[in-house]
Design a protein around this nucleic acid. Structure first.
Lengths: 211, 211
DNA sequence: ATATACAAGTTGCACTTGCACCTTTTTGTT
DNA sequence: AACAAAAAGGTGCAAGTGCAACTTGTATAT
């Protein structure tokens, strides 16, 4: 997993900070990140901690648009839609580095090798993000909960090639990820158990049809 | 809209081609693109024409994963999932430039300014792609067809700020984009008309609630 | 002018899902 | 140990949706 500062020395990172005029902000747990500069064109990098991007719907519903872990990259041109109806919340004490997008894209930067190394790292991180989004879309396109679940199992299974998968989050969060009603998903999981497709023990799901 | 070769002279593009050892392939209408090198780690750029990435489901269903127009960038690490169940089909006579991903990411490239300019263009193009995918996800997360439609209208409306939108594609394609059954979507459009939310004339949809 | 192909539009019906409202189990806190 | 809070698990029911099977409209080609 690439980090934004891979292959850069401390001295180069300092120079990079200066070149891009970065700002570093710290937020405590449950604090809103970047409420004031939200509508500006920025790129953020999570240096420490854990935060979430939430989409806020007209009815007040909050949907987790993205999880931001250490080294995650986000920003108006990267992970956010052009809408204003979102919020970024620190879920732990979190440190964020903020770069002005125009400064990042300034062609003059390209003469500095340390910048180009950094930029290449960003490219790599963003590519991973696209792959994740493609996976989610492929699941959400499925019309039935059973199909969504099986597609999800298939994808998780491809990552470790075992006959079972470990959920990286709670079943409740899985329902959100699949964008289906939680109890409807539970019902479908029960049917899958009854049909001997799967067995569930806590967060371990055994894929019986893979045996 | 950024193209991969913005701000590069013909001479620089030649040097770039040499540096990256690019290959250029031509495909005729309805021909499959890259059937042989599909599983290799590549980045493709559409130089001319129009193609589509199709996800192929276990039951043979084909879902349009992405439209590739001129200057679109695609590839195993960019727009494709890590599955093998997809196909890229030329919908017109199409010319594609292919770069080996490892060659693209070779740190030695970073000493060449023309490479860095090119790389920056790719970054820009890919960011647009992420924004598009975020928009689609935001729509697909909605549980009801009506909500999906209204979210779609909202997003299209934000792009031109008028009281109506022009569909960029057919209603059939809209149903695919929203990942819902076509006739169920028609039914819901009819309800929206009956409820005086919208009026439809061909591909022009008037948003009555915006008036 | 006729045939062909495809998008648009419609309808009935069975099945799936969301939702509201429960209970039980697990987890964390004082 | 007692309590609160959250996750897991469950159920009835109404509403929504997918699907199949149509009709109508429109454009293109022969």
């Amino acid at each position: 997993m690439t980090s934004p500062f891979d292959n850069l020395t401390k001295a180069q990172i300092s120079k990079l900070y200066e070149l891009l005029g970065v700002h570093i902000y710290s937020f405590s747990e449950n604090q809103e990140i970047l409420p004031t500069i939200k509508n500006e064109n920025i790129v953020g990098i999570v240096l420490e901690g854990y935060a979430q991007i939430l989409n806020i719907e007209y009815n007040g519903n909050e949907i987790i648009a993205e999880n931001l872990y250490k080294n995650s990259v986000f920003g108006s041109n990267i992970s956010l839609t052009n809408s204003e109806n979102y919020q970024i919340i620190a879920r732990q004490d979190t440190t964020v580095l903020v770069i002005d997008y125009d400064k990042l894209m300034n062609p003059k930067n390209l003469v500095h090798n340390y910048f180009n190394v950094f930029f290449r790292n960003l490219f790599d991180i963003i590519n991973v993000k696209i792959r994740e989004k493609n996976e989610r879309i492929k699941i959400l396109e499925k019309k039935q909960i059973r199909e969504k679940l099986l597609e999800f199992f298939e994808m998780e299974n491809k990552k470790n090639r075992l006959k079972y998968i470990y959920l990286p989050f709670s079943l409740k969060d899985l329902a959100d990820y699949l964008a289906v009603n939680r109890s409807a998903m539970f019902r479908e999981l029960k049917h899958l158990k009854e049909d001997k497709f799967i067995e569930i023990k806590d967060r371990k799901i055994v894929l019986l049809y893979k045996l």
